[in-house]
Amino acid sequence: MINLVHNELIKLVRKKRLYIILAIVAVLVALFTYAQMKEVKSLQERLGTTDWRSQLQQDIVNTQNRLNSSTIPDDLRKYFLIRISEQEYYLEHDVDPSAPGAPTFMRMFVENSIDLLMPLMVVVVVGDLVSSELSGGTIKMLLTRPVKRWRILMSKFLTMILSVSFIVLSLALLSYLISGAVFGYSGWTMPILTGFSTNGNVLVTTNVHLIYQWQYLLMELGLAWFVGIIVGSITLMLSVLIRSTAAVTGVMLATLISGPILANMVSSWESAKYLFMVNLRITDYISGGAPPIQGMTLGFSMIILTIWGIAALLVAFITFTRRDVY
């Protein structure tokens, strides 16, 4: 099995897709760092202060003013109320949720890339694991070896897990290294509040506790990895089912992009919460954001994602072991 996985990894590295991903991430992180720096500067100029408390309070007041507008939709109102109580909680406990520093940037980067950017990279790498062999015909070489078919697919599955780990690692490392050049490399031990939960539009703070930023980051990266594995499994299934790599990538792209759009629109279509792409932003639960659809929790989303992942793998393995190859 180890040899099989090694074989797969050699193929993966030869294809240079991992390097392309590293380059994409590096460019994007540099862009985001620059944008973030600009924003911090312009905010300071507008408010005439560098004090985060004044900035946060101004944010609260602005939101409260928006709440008074009668045209604001109900779910947005709920979201604002939750955000305000969260921000007030930060002020009361004198914790700056966005103290500058590379770890903070990294945290925001992970939170914002978990539902689209990171899964896209996974799709780019995983999309052709099987389909390229089907379309290129090399699958016959592989299947003539005295190895059971499920072991071959298993080696591809393990390769998928390894490459997801690698992608998450490169996201983390690159965002830390590049943004640190601007924001400084410290901030690992900054306290962060977690454990917010929502009940209707009330923020429940009974479980709120402080943890260090490095612990928080480890948690978020773990969740990002989890999401990556699920997306990878579904992509692997499509890769088995569809011969054309471009089609696999296209289908996955469309599905992933539909996630954020759906999450914006479906607050009234409740059963949309069973779709995997609506459940990808699981880091929001630990940072205290409002769920896209009422009733969704971290546990719920993880169970839904796990079910999708397992179902996809089942389909992939059954199809792969029974299919006629010619």
């Binding site: 780990s165 998450v168 690692l169 977690t194 454990g195 943890i211 612990q215 480890l218 948690m219 978020e220 990266l221 773990g222 969740l223 990002a224 990895w225 989890f226 639960y285 630990i286 971290l298 546990g299």
Partner: peptide, 14 residues
């Protein structure tokens, strides 16, 4: 690392 992070999350949140 990520498995550790994930189990830490589950432990911390649940």
């Amino acid at each position: 690392m990520w498995v550790v992070g994930l189990s830490f999350t589950i432990n911390d949140q649940f």
